[in-house]
Design a protein around this nucleic acid. Structure first.
Lengths: 153, 153
DNA sequence: CTTGCACCTGTAGTCACTACAGGTACCATA
DNA sequence: TATGGTACCTGTAGTGACTACAGGTGCAAG
């Protein structure tokens, strides 16, 4: 598949149609153009943006990368690799691997949050203590995990 | 523990000391004041902010809540509950439970990202195909999971 | 030829900070 | 008491990735 060869096919999609086709907000498409993610499209006589198949594909690429949590900077880097003739597979892999590390770090963070929150809520639910143990925990920074939870004295 | 009773003890901490004690950035402390999270502290003759024990505790509360991923709006709501005499345990629990749901949703998102990314990277690593399968996947939106990965033809 | 929608540009708002610039207070030492 | 080096002050602007206007113009169907 030579993607460059598709560049000028169907160059008459206005921005709303591109939006519907890709599921990407109109404002976001214009933003991506300003941000250097999408190239400036052709314009109609009256100044309306006119897109072709190449744009549809590129925007699809961007959307999928964003859904995987790549930042726009990372997306720009991926697009640079795409735009080279030899697709620099190794670099793409490295970029993705670094991103995967970041995702896993965030995942670990969230898992910690999840368990602390779940513990606090459970603790609070069965409470017969005068003060709210949930708010207490936030106040004194006490560990929820491994604590008796029913309260002593 | 009556927290209100501690309000005026040790009211002579300047912002840098509060920062060191709580691990919260000086700029962030001032931001929290502007944002209505922390009350306006007393001032020295020359206009420097002077904090007491109550502020130390409140800021600790805010920090811990933020670390659990509560938004500042949620933190404000939690603080309102704290500031009521009857600590409204049920409401705190509901707030935390809603937040836990959000955390779990985000967790599920990230887990999906993680598995797709890991799959893409694995696929790319063993590639003998001409094009980069990682970039290809981003282009055509093909599923990585359950695909042969070694390439056919 | 008119109507009404789609499109245009440019700017400002979101969230939770962070980073200045340009100026003043505080406090320890000489 | 003078001085010097911090620590502090206010106000504004920047971050990322959009989103939401306001106020104006193009386009295509009837």
């Amino acid at each position: 598949m030579d993607r460059a060869a598709l560049s000028d096919v169907l160059p008459r999609l206005p921005i709303g149609a591109l939006s519907r086709r890709t599921g990407c907000n109109v404002e976001t498409i214009r933003y991506y153009e300003r941000a250097g993610i999408l190239p400036h499209p052709a314009r109609s006589e009256g100044g309306h943006r006119m897109y072709g198949t190449a744009h549809v594909m590129r925007l699809g690429f961007v959307r999928r990368a964003r859904e995987l949590g790549f930042t726009l900077d990372e997306v720009r880097a991926l697009l640079r690799l795409v735009d080279q003739e030899d697709h620099a597979c190794v670099e793409a892999r490295e970029l993705a691997a670094r991103h995967l590390q970041a995702v896993r770090a965030r995942l670990a963070d969230l898992q910690r949050m999840e368990s602390v929150l779940a513990g606090m809520i459970e603790c609070c639910g069965g409470s017969v203590r005068p003060e709210c143990p949930l708010l207490e925990t936030l106040f004194d920074g006490g560990e929820v995990e491994g604590k008796s939870c029913s309260g002593e004295a």
